[in-house]
């Protein structure tokens, strides 16, 4: 448990090694211990279309938070469905060097998990939480459509959009975008955001987020750091409203982790079975595939 001691002391090398073990399907003892002392951190989800300024915003949030708190950051990047590789460019926006153990940033690929929030990212949240990082900020790929799964992970969901793209409003109208807890209208240095704020208010109407709270709208220039203090007030206000429900959130996130873990175990078998089954009758194919799965579950062939 030397690695754990080092990690608890804030050694970034040790923290990083634990995260890698989990990515490799090992290190569940570390996860267990850290989860037992964790479950306290405020998880802040940041989503929105590419280019809206999510990473830049995270950089300015880190600047405000790190002086008094240990900040954890997970940057989830899209993985290629063809090569499974990933180009991870989010760190370009976060250039400062912080004292060791105060700001820990990790990029990870979405690796094909449905909803873009992968099993590994929840395990990493649990680890950083147990190590005392709070808040933990999670950037996810929002290719227009906001991942429904981020809402089951984060305590506070922030949606970043800009007045530049009328598409964003259209998506909200069509109900494609989830209701966020806070809307950040970014790049307010470039555009006059006031008209946009009004149309956003119209679209949101009397909608409430999952805690029956009206979402707040904050005008920000992430690049200039303007409006970031107001955003933090908004974030902290949201957190104080929902703190009493936090146990439930932690439980929901851990159940999600188990769900994703099981899916990961079973899905290669499903894919493999569908590839091999004979196709002379679709009905027969379904039935015999079903039997293969039943058999595998009964006879311990999974794993």
């Amino acid at each position: 448990m030397e690695l754990l001691d080092e990690a608890l002391k804030g050694k970034e090398m040790a923290i990083a090694k634990i995260l890698t073990l989990l990515e490799r399907g090992k290190g569940l003892d570390y996860l267990d211990y850290l989860a037992s002392i964790g479950g306290k951190a405020h998880i802040i989800g940041i989503t929105g279309p590419p280019g809206a300024g999510k990473s830049t915003l995270i950089s300015s949030l880190i600047e405000r938070y790190y002086t008094t708190r240990k900040v954890g950051v997970l940057l989830i990047e899209p993985s290629s469905p063809i090569s499974f590789g990933s180009f991870m460019g989010n760190r370009i926006r976060i250039q400062r060097l912080y004292p060791e153990g105060r700001v820990f940033i990790r990029s990870l690929g979405s690796r094909g998990d449905l909803g873009g929030i992968s099993r590994d990212s929840i395990m990493m949240i649990e680890v950083l939480d147990g190590l005392g990082f709070d808040p933990i900020i999670v950037e996810t790929v929002g290719a227009g459509q906001i991942d429904t799964d981020i809402t089951s992970i984060a305590d506070t969901n922030i949606i970043v959009i800009t007045p530049a793209s009328g598409d964003d409003i259209q998506m909200l109208k069509a109900g494609i975008m989830e209701i966020g807890d806070i809307y950040v209208i970014n790049k307010s240095d470039l555009y006059n955001s006031d008209v946009f704020v009004i149309s956003l208010k119209n679209v949101l109407g009397s909608a409430t987020s999952r805690y029956s709270l009206r979402p707040e709208i904050v005008k920000v220039s992430a690049i200039k750091g303007e409006g970031v203090d107001e955003l933090i007030i908004s974030i902290e206000k949201h957190w104080s409203f929902i703190k009493d429900n936090h146990r439930e959130n932690v439980e929901r996130r851990r159940r999600k982790l188990i769900e994703l873990y099981l899916r990961n175990l079973i899905s290669p078998l499903i894919v493999d079975t569908a590839k091999k089954v004979g196709l002379s009758s679709i009905k027969d194919a379904i039935n015999s595939s079903h039997n293969v799965l039943k058999d595998a579950l009964c006879h311990g062939k999974i794993l």
Partner: peptide, 28 residues
């Protein structure tokens, strides 16, 4: 390298040895 199936962290211009090592550690 991404097309070759790798996960590639790209950090942009003017990186110093200090920054590179720090990022390499966190990202393992």
């Amino acid at each position: 390298l991404k097309d070759q199936g790798m996960e590639v962290v790209y950090t942009g211009l003017r990186q110093t040895p200090e920054k590179i090592v720090r990022t390499a550690i966190q990202e393992d």
